[in-house]
Amino acid sequence: MSSDTIRVGIIGCGMITQRSHAPGFAKVGGVTITALCDPVAENAVKVQKEHAPDARLFSDWRELLKAGLVDAVSVATPVYLHAPMSVAALEAGCHVLCEKPMAMSSAEATGMLAAARQAGKVLQLNLSRRYDPFYQTIAKLIADGRLGELRHIRAIRMHTGAPDQGWSPTGTWFVSKKHGGGIVGDIGVHVGDMMLWYFGAVESISAVTATRRSDIDVEDNATALFRFRSGATGLLELSWTSAVNRMCFEIHGSDGILLGAAPGEGLQILRKQGTPEQIPPTQYLQGVKNSFQCFADAIRGIASSPAPGEVGCAIQVVLDAIRESGRNGGRQVAIAAG
């Protein structure tokens, strides 16, 4: 499929689709949204009116897959549905773009990857940092040796509330264990993926998790210590109960320390001697493609996906280890090589 129009169906028309998936696909050349599915009819109608006027509406995702209207699907649903929906779509001959985190467990993620390989279809994760010029610029700085040998990373992501208290008021699944909620999967997946991307494979993890809200059954705070196979270390700090919103990180190398926060604030490299090097947003990598364009390019064979199923499986192992260690009082969890 090098030039044919790619027909996309979106399963799940909640806030993430309304804010990201639908407008994202609508802007990609040679892609048409032909089907929308959500059990809440008004969600699908809203997306149809705003982004896909010719799309057919479904309330049952299985019926969408049977209709023969799509070449690819975007799975933008609560986490507990990712694996069954993705596997069924792949077995039906569709390429799949799946929201993060990939699945409820590493076992589910591995099954999704196996289904993609068996079907010979693209399985891509919507890990947003992989498609962001800010984080791509950091990856290039590291690859170019600007920091020397990597030794440590500290990443902090603090929020004053969970998604159901902010940008997604109806998204109660974010704070429901049986639906795959919790801060580790919601935010930890992004920060943890960044750590794996820059530092490589993880050898072990020790973590402490806590639940400070009295009305939920998932962790809303987490701190995890990483040991990478390279010998480097990492510290991940997450909260949904912070007094203020805060996102920042430090990447320590033998030749300098890279400091960063929100993408719009630029980057700074500290050296042992001399003036800190400033890297403003105007110097970020140019021409970085978003997730939806990358998905289309991967389907057409133009370029490999920056976040294929293998990447999703790798971060899923880390998420599982953080939760396991947290449940067991911070006991170190070893991660198998490979």
Rank of each mutant, 00 (worst) to 15 (best):
R151H: 11
A296Q: 02
N290D: 15
L123E: 01
Q273C: 00
M194I: 07
L97S: 12
G166Y: 03
K178N: 02
I156F: 10
A83Q: 12
V317P: 02
I10E: 05
F226T: 06
G148V: 11
P263S: 13
I269C: 11
G266C: 09
D164H: 15
A210W: 04
D144N: 11
D220H: 05
H51Q: 12
T209Y: 09
R300T: 02
V45I: 11
Q332S: 10
D60H: 09
I33W: 01
I315Q: 06
I257Y: 02
Q136P: 01
T223S: 12
A76S: 12
G274Y: 08
A83D: 00
V218P: 14
G161M: 00
T223N: 01
E108Y: 09
R157P: 04
S106Q: 04
L113M: 10
G185N: 08
V333N: 04
W173S: 13
R146K: 15
S105Y: 04
A232C: 08
T160Q: 14
A52P: 02
W167S: 11
Y135M: 07
V184I: 15
L65T: 03
V79C: 11
Y80K: 14
G253S: 05
N221S: 13
H179M: 15
G182P: 04
A119S: 08
K121V: 06
G274M: 06
S20G: 03
S3K: 13
E108M: 11
V288P: 07
H252Q: 11
A107T: 13
A44D: 01
I142E: 03
S59C: 00
F25H: 14
H252I: 10
C13I: 01
L236P: 00
W167D: 09
A89I: 01
